[in-house]
Design a protein around this nucleic acid. Structure first.
Length: 609
DNA sequence: ATAGGGTTAG
């Protein structure tokens, strides 16, 4: 074969495969080195060279790419573009990918070539992938100077995208507004920029602006708008979008379906979510995850585990998002056995027990009463973040391990981890539990002075609880009166609890009135108040209170607990006799109670409820 | 030839 024939042969083989075998690569490469100048038309070169270069056998070796380009003599702009764009993206090392892109860009500039409207978007894409803002901004500057940002909407959109992923929504808006050229992708990127930054309301507004501009949304736009509805919990808007999808022939692909499932669950309509889920022609693991974590988010933990069981039955492999949802449900139901199963599954499948998974395991073990296991998981984690620490501290506080909790907290600055508001809920709860008034007060002060955190009502509630438990009921009252922010139900509830401990009927009545103004529909205050009355032998008041509750058609939310036996979750409510072995259960409970009394422990009983 | 999509904690 002469060289022309060889090239035709090589070309036909190369274009028919995505990546090429190492043998074939070596053959072609050797041949390429031997046959200079290249007897190939340019378009053919552009098809072949990127494939040669981005072959995985070169392991992304930039030296190889550059020597290849140098070998070619004068590569043209199209070839550079094709190579930059064809560089295999390395998801585990995005920085390397960006460095290669930038190196190629430099090489290109040194060869006297200027980036065009194909070069700029692919370079910006690499910048956006690793949030290289400074590098991206240099490209942005070039795009302005060269006029590309005005003349090409792809350039404009990728610049917007860069600022969107860097979370600078003002810049996204600015770039969007600056030039008149905007297409569906520009609008979608703008909406996404808002929603991702937690500005769902602004995102929805931009969506309406887009509709006013007579731009028709497609699947991608609608998915983002649906996620905004989820964040807002705006069911009526969500249903409007859903109707739009039905009426306008939008193809309900698996992304749209998942977004709908998620939207309905976040907006509190589990039945509509289930309806969409059941009607989806194609489901993937994200569909299942949306159901499981969505149900868990709505507090429907048992239902979430049922869906997980269904998923297991059809043999779909859970991923780490699934497992986090399952662990969260286990934690809130106290289902230790399934939680342990998940832990074993994680180990068996060599899933890294760090990040979300590790934190969920710590929380699950702590909430299921196995603080030792929680601690072991926590200590075994390679990387811990503020979530890990908070889960551990809250867990230890719940278990009365006050000193360990505060010890772990003191470790945080050494590890370079900033505690946040939730961490302090755990710290203050620990102090409350241990009766550490002075320490609690110090931590409370440190929140603003050292950590620059503004105490929320939860923290004030914790302080009231701390003071109340320590017998400092007057201080607790004063503390509430001097709050710089409006006390909410959490704070008043804590004060009412303190009143109960100390039999402060009058104060309790004042607090009760405040509480009823904030949440008249809840029964908690009535129950607590009634207990206060009956403890003080004010039976008449207690009866009156009960009558009021009846008139307002309130019933006590029954206390509920559950256990898991051989994979079945059994739920028990107060006074529940529906279990088929309830007679046995109550008999056993009575026996336990009599033993407990032998030890001199007095159960705290309320008379009426 | 190039750009925009869903699920995950304390």
């Amino acid at each position: 074969m002469n060289s022309q024939e060889l090239w035709v042969h090589a070309y036909s083989r190369l274009r028919s495969c995505k990546s090429i075998s190492i043998t074939h690569l070596k053959q072609t490469h050797t041949f390429l080195i031997k046959t200079r100048p290249l007897p190939l038309p340019l378009p053919t070169q552009h098809l072949i060279y990127p494939k040669l270069i981005s072959s995985p056998h070169h392991n992304n070796n930039l030296t190889y790419i550059l020597s290849f380009l140098n070998h070619l003599g004068k590569p043209d702009l199209c070839l550079y573009n094709a190579i930059i764009q064809g560089l295999p993206s390395n998801p585990t090392n995005k920085t390397t990918s960006l460095l290669q892109v930038l190196e190629l860009l430099r090489h290109m500039l040194l060869n006297g070539l200027l980036p065009d409207h194909y070069t700029v978007p692919s370079v910006l894409k690499a910048c956006a992938q690793c949030r290289a803002l400074r590098e991206g901004q240099q490209i942005h500057a070039y795009a302005i100077k060269s006029g590309l940002v005005l003349s090409n909407v792809y350039v404009k959109n990728t610049i917007m995208r860069l600022y969107a992923v860097c979370g600078i929504v003002n810049y996204v808006r600015k770039v969007f507004d600056e030039t008149p050229q905007r297409d569906l992708v520009s609008w979608t990127t703008l909406i996404q920029g808002y929603v991702k930054m937690g500005l769902a309301r602004e995102g929805v507004e931009a969506f309406f602006d887009m509709c006013d501009a007579k731009m028709r949304p497609d699947e991608m736009t609608l998915v983002i708008v649906l996620s905004a509805c989820s964040k807002l919990g705006d069911l009526s808007l969500g249903r409007k979008i859903s109707r739009y999808i039905d009426d306008n022939g939008v193809y309900p692909d698996v992304f749209v379906g998942n977004a709908l499932v998620n939207m309905y669950l976040e907006c509190g309509d589990a039945e509509l979510a289930r309806g969409v889920f059941d009607g989806m022609p194609v489901r993937n693991v994200v569909s299942w995850n949306s159901m499981i974590s969505g149900l868990a988010h709505q507090g429907k933990y048992k239902e979430a585990l049922d869906v997980f069981q269904e998923m297991q039955r059809i043999g779909l492999e859970p991923d780490d998002v699934t497992l986090v949802g399952v662990l969260n449900s286990c934690a809130n139901l106290g289902v230790l056995e399934l939680g342990k199963w998940v832990h074993a599954y994680v180990d068996r499948n060599q899933i890294e027990a760090d990040g979300y998974i590790g934190n969920a395991l710590v929380d699950m073990y702590a909430k299921c009463g196995s603080i030792d296991r929680a601690f072991r998981v926590f200590q075994g984690m390679k990387r811990r973040d503020v979530y890990s620490y908070t889960a551990m501290i809250v867990g230890l506080a719940m278990h009365g391990e006050v000193e360990v909790a505060l010890d772990i907290f003191s470790e945080m600055p050494r590890m370079g981890i900033q505690p946040d508001e939730v961490t302090f809920v755990g710290v203050l709860a620990a102090c409350s539990h241990g009766g550490l008034v002075a320490e609690g007060q110090k931590y409370f002060r440190d929140m603003s002075t050292v950590y620059n955190l503004r105490p929320q009502t939860e923290h004030y509630g914790c302080m009231v609880d701390l003071l109340g438990r320590a017998g400092l009921i007057n201080e607790a009252e004063e503390f509430v009166n001097n709050m710089p922010i409006e006390p909410d139900a959490f704070v008043w509830g804590a004060l009412l609890g303190a009143c109960r401990i100390h039999g402060k009927v009058e104060l309790a009545e004042t607090v009760m009135k405040k509480l009823l103004k904030i949440e008249p529909e809840r029964d908690g205050a009535y129950v607590l108040m009634s207990n206060i009355y009956s403890s003080a032998n004010k039976w008449r008041n207690a009866v009156q209170l009960r009558r009021e509750m009846k008139e307002k058609n309130m019933t006590k939310t029954p206390g509920c607990s559950s256990i898991e036996l051989e994979g079945v979750v059994h739920e028990f409510r107060k006074g529940d006799k529906s279990h088929k072995r309830s007679k046995h259960i109550y008999k056993l409970l009575d026996e336990i109670m009599s033993h407990v009394k032998d030890y001199g422990v007095l159960a705290h009983r309320s008379t009426f409820f």
